[in-house]
Design a binder for these strands. Structure first.
Length: 429
DNA sequence: TGACATGATTGATA
DNA sequence: TATCAATCATGTCA
C-alpha cells in the first residue's frame, strides 16, 4: 500500500515533464514561485483519484464533487485528454483508418446506372431501355412493358430515397444527441473535442453500414425487377382471335407470296395490336408450318377462302362499302379482294405494295370468289388429304425446292391470274 | 397430365 | 438483313 503514493508522485512528475500543458496551466494559475505547493496539490488530487474506488459511494460522490470543483481540474483533464490521445485513441484511430469501401462504390455505381440514385430525369426509362438493349433490343415495341418497368423502378427509387432520408435524419439526430451527451460528460470526465469528432466519425461509419444495407437491398430489388422484366419477354401469350384472323386472312390471300412488305407488316402490326417483329415471327412460323403440312392447313385455307368469297359476294351485292373495301388476293384473285375485317388495311397495303386498286375488276373477281365459295360448299365434309385440298388452295407459290417464289417480290405485284396455280384458275373450274 | 398449338429464339444462309 | 429451319418454352385442351 505504501507504494501507491510513491507511484503517484512519480506519475505526477512524469506528467509535469511529459505534459507541458499541465505545467503551463499550473504556472498560469499558481505562479512560478509556489513550486512545493503545486506539487503538493497535484499529489493530493492524484491520490484522491486513485483511492476513490476504495471509498463508499457517498464518499466517492462527495470526493468527485470536490474534485470537479477543484481549481486544478481543467489542467488535469487536459493532461488526461492528451494521454488518451496518445494511447487508446491513437491506437483506435489507426485501426479505424479504412480504405474506401469498394463494395459501397459498386453499389453506388449500380444504383446510379439503374437510375435509382442520381438525377431522376430519364433515369428509369434509360435503365429500361438499357435493359431492353441488353436483352436483345426490343426498342419501343414493348412500350407497355417498359412503362411497367419504369413504374416499378420509380417505386423502388421513391422507397430508396425515403429510406435514405430517414437514415440521414436518424444519423444526424443521433450524432447531435451523442455530441451533446459527450459535451455534457466532458464536464465530469476528460473528453477532448477531437475525441468527440472521432466519435462522430464512428457513428457515421456505423450508419454507413446501415446505408450500405439499404443500398444492397435496393440493388437486389432492381435486379429482381430487371430479371422479371427480361423473363417476361420470353413469356408467350397467344395472340387474340381477331389478330390471328387478320394475319391468316393476309396469309391466305397472299398465299402465292406470303411475304408482307415492311409497310404491310407495320399495318398488320397496328391492326393486330402486336409488334412488327411479332408479325415477322408469325409469318415466318406460318410459312414454315404451312409448307411442312399443307394438308393440315387446307381446311383453314378453305375457310378463309370461303370468307373472302362471302365478302366479295357482299361487295357485289351492296356495291362499294366503306367498311369493306377491296383488297388484293394474290392467292387467286386479279389483285382486288374484299376482306371483312381488314379491308381498309389491305387496301392501303395494296397501294403500298404498288398495286393499283381497280374497282372495275371487282365484278370479275366476285365471280371467281363465288365460284370459290361454291367449291367450298360442295366440298363440305372435308378433304381426305392435302392433294385433294389443293384443288382449292394449292401451294401455288411453293417451288420445287419447297420454297415460295422469290420472296422479295411482293405477292400483289405478280398477277395471280397469270400463275398456273392461282386459286382463280383452280376454282373457276 | 400429356399432347398439341403457337409465339419466341437462335444459328445458318443467301 | 430477311428468311429458313430447328428448337425452346409456354398456353390450351381433352
Amino acid at each position: 500500500m505504501d507504494e501507491q503514493p510513491r507511484l503517484m508522485h512519480a506519475h505526477a512528475a512524469v506528467g509535469m515533464s511529459g505534459h507541458p500543458g499541465l505545467s503551463q496551466h499550473i504556472q498560469d494559475n499558481t505562479g512560478a514561485n509556489d513550486g512545493d505547493g503545486r506539487k503538493q496539490d497535484i499529489g493530493d488530487i492524484l491520490q484522491q483519484i486513485m483511492t476513490i474506488t476504495d471509498q463508499s459511494l457517498d464518499e466517492a460522490q462527495a470526493r468527485k464533487h470536490a474534485l470537479n470543483c477543484h481549481r486544478m481540474k481543467p489542467a488535469l483533464f487536459n493532461v488526461l485528454c492528451e494521454i488518451k490521445e496518445k494511447t487508446v485513441l491513437s491506437i483506435r484511430g489507426a485501426q479505424e483508418e479504412e480504405p474506401p469501401d469498394a463494395q459501397l462504390m459498386r453499389l453506388d455505381n449500380m444504383l446510379l446506372a439503374e437510375g435509382v440514385s442520381g438525377p431522376e430525369k430519364g433515369g428509369g426509362s434509360a435503365a429500361a431501355a438499357a435493359a431492353a438493349a441488353a436483352s436483345g433490343g426490343i426498342g419501343a415495341d414493348n412500350s407497355a412493358e417498359h412503362s411497367d418497368y419504369r413504374a416499378k423502378l420509380s417505386q423502388i427509387r421513391q422507397i430508396y430515397h425515403t429510406e435514405l432520408e430517414k437514415y440521414e435524419q436518424a444519423c444526424n439526430e443521433f450524432t447531435t444527441h451523442v455530441m451533446n451527451l459527450l459535451r455534457e460528460q466532458s464536464r465530469t470526465r476528460p473528453i477532448s473535442p477531437k475525441e468527440i469528432e472521432r466519435m462522430v466519425g464512428i457513428i457515421h461509419r456505423k450508419f454507413s453500414s446501415i446505408q450500405m444495407q439499404l443500398k444492397q437491398s435496393t440493388c437486389e430489388a432492381v435486379m429482381i425487377l430487371r430479371s422479371r422484366f427480361l423473363d417476361a419477354r420470353r413469356k408467350r401469350r397467344n395472340f387474340n382471335k381477331q389478330a390471328t384472323e387478320i394475319l391468316n386472312e393476309y396469309f391466305y390471300s397472299h398465299l402465292s407470296n406470303p411475304y408482307p412488305s415492311e409497310e404491310a407488316k407495320e399495318e398488320l402490326a397496328k391492326k393486330c395490336s402486336i409488334t412488327v417483329s411479332q408479325v415477322s415471327n408469325w409469318f415466318g412460323n406460318k410459312r414454315i408450318r404451312y409448307k411442312k403440312n399443307i394438308g393440315k392447313f387446307q381446311e383453314e385455307a378453305n375457310m378463309y377462302a370461303a370468307r373472302t368469297a362471302v365478302s366479295a359476294t357482299s361487295v357485289s351485292t351492296h356495291g362499294s362499302q366503306a367498311n369493306s373495301p377491296s383488297t388484293p388476293n394474290s392467292a387467286g384473285s386479279a389483285g382486288s379482294f374484299s376482306m371483312s375485317n381488314s379491308g381498309d388495311l389491305f387496301m392501303s397495303v395494296q397501294s403500298l405494295n404498288g398495286d393499283s386498286y381497280q374497282g372495275s375488276q371487282v365484278g370479275a373477281n366476285v365471280q371467281s370468289q363465288v365460284d370459290t365459295l361454291r367449291h367450298v360448299i360442295s366440298q363440305t365434309g372435308g378433304y381426305s388429304d392435302g392433294l385433294a385440298a389443293n384443288q382449292m388452295y394449292s401451294p401455288q407459290g411453293i417451288n420445287a425446292n419447297g420454297g415460295w417464289q422469290d420472296p422479295t417480290t411482293p405477292s400483289s405485284v405478280t398477277s395471280p391470274t397469270e400463275g398456273p396455280g392461282s386459286v382463280h384458275s383452280d376454282t373457276s373450274n
